[in-house]
């Protein structure tokens, strides 16, 4: 028994001993194990009296262990979570909002670009529905060129909006039609006007909303399509709406997307979920305009860098092999 146990521990400790320091540790633990083994042999060889003796000797640590285990169990029973884990939350699940389902977005994969037809439809939904209340400050007309619209289309769309410019020669500000370099017009001139028009609630700017909300695309999609009647017992104030995905459940924005609200020129049926999907894709593009080229460059970089890694490992071995495998010969003088 001694030999088997000790040799097993030898193996276990030597397995990690790749460096000289590791080997020292291994040797030491071998000695320790050998002592332990002989001790336990001695114990089993005698009677159970020694067991009893060890219990009484260790009464103090055993008591403390039992007390701490008991208090942890009591705490867990009282508060429903294991202590020392960072789970302190004053929110009920309803206050955190329903966790959105993960949807298979057309751009989810690491090699997948946005579906640009969807961006184009989503822009239409934004323009016809969302833009009534939500601004899109960080997107300029020119950003749409080559993404969802041609330059001529965008010029025409921008030209329909009046922008203030100036001052002219007389120092007066004047109105002019929009140009490609102008940014998206905002529905309200400032935050106060936006709040006043929405019963005190501020419609957030949508430029970065996909990045700014936990859950991203899934959350916004779930929010847009998740309006339901409040369950029994939930009181929603006048002017508020119930949406289980919104933290707290009560949201100022009413359900806006209904089947057939917009008419897509490309013939796609404008169902609620289709419109929500398109506008979320559009908003995701607005938040990450670099998305497509980022993924493409990432793919190229991964290919190049992994090939470089493999080759440099080969070259390292190639350079080191003669150094590591050389044999030094000493021929003593005769």
């Amino acid at each position: 028994m001694f030999s088997r146990l000790s040799s097993r521990s030898l193996g276990a400790s030597a397995r990690y001993g790749s460096s000289p320091a590791g080997r020292v540790v291994a040797v030491r633990s071998v000695q320790l194990d050998a002592e332990k083994t002989s001790l336990s042999q001695a114990r089993f060889a005698s009677s159970k009296a020694s067991t009893r003796a060890s219990l009484s000797n260790n009464a103090l640590p055993i008591t403390f262990a039992l007390i701490s285990a008991g208090s942890i169990a009591w705490y867990t029973h009282l508060y429903g979570s294991i202590p020392f884990l960072p789970e302190a939350s004053a929110n009920t699940p309803a206050e955190d909002g329903l966790h959105p389902t993960h949807y298979p977005w057309s751009h989810s994969g690491i090699l997948d670009t946005f579906d640009h037809s969807s961006i184009r439809r989503g822009y239409q939904v934004y323009r016809e529905v969302c833009a009534a209340c939500h601004s899109l400050d960080r997107i300029a007309w020119r950003n749409l060129v080559g993404v969802s619209h041609t330059a001529d289309e965008v010029k025409e769309m921008a030209g329909e909006v009046e922008y203030e410019d100036g001052p002219d020669d007389a120092g007066e500000m004047f109105q002019r039609p929009g140009k490609l370099s102008d940014y998206m017009p905002r529905p309200y001139p400032n935050e106060e006007a936006a709040r006043a028009g929405n019963a005190g609630a501020l419609p957030p700017d949508l430029s970065l909303i996909i990045k700014a909300r936990h859950g991203g695309c899934d959350y916004v999609f779930s929010l847009l399509t998740g309006y339901v009647d409040p369950p029994a017992g939930v009181e929603i104030r006048e002017g508020m709406n119930y949406n289980p995905y919104f933290p707290g459940g009560a949201i100022s924005m009413a359900r806006l997307l209904f089947d057939g609200l917009v008419e897509y020129p490309d013939g796609t049926p404008a169902t609620t979920s289709q419109m929500a999907k398109d506008v979320v894709t559009f908003l995701n593009w607005a938040a990450e305009p670099e998305h497509d080229s980022r993924k493409r460059i990432g793919m190229q970089a991964c290919i190049i860098l992994s090939a470089l890694t493999a080759i440099s490992l080969y070259v390292k071995r190639f350079k080191w092999a003669p150094i590591k495998s050389r044999k030094l010969l000493y021929t003593p003088p005769k």
Binding site: S3, G11, R15, R23, A26
Partner: peptide, 11 residues
């Protein structure tokens, strides 16, 4: 120390 010895095996 004895480098290169595998000590897996038992006696």
């Amino acid at each position: 120390i004895a480098p290169g010895i595998s000590l897996y095996a038992k006696g």
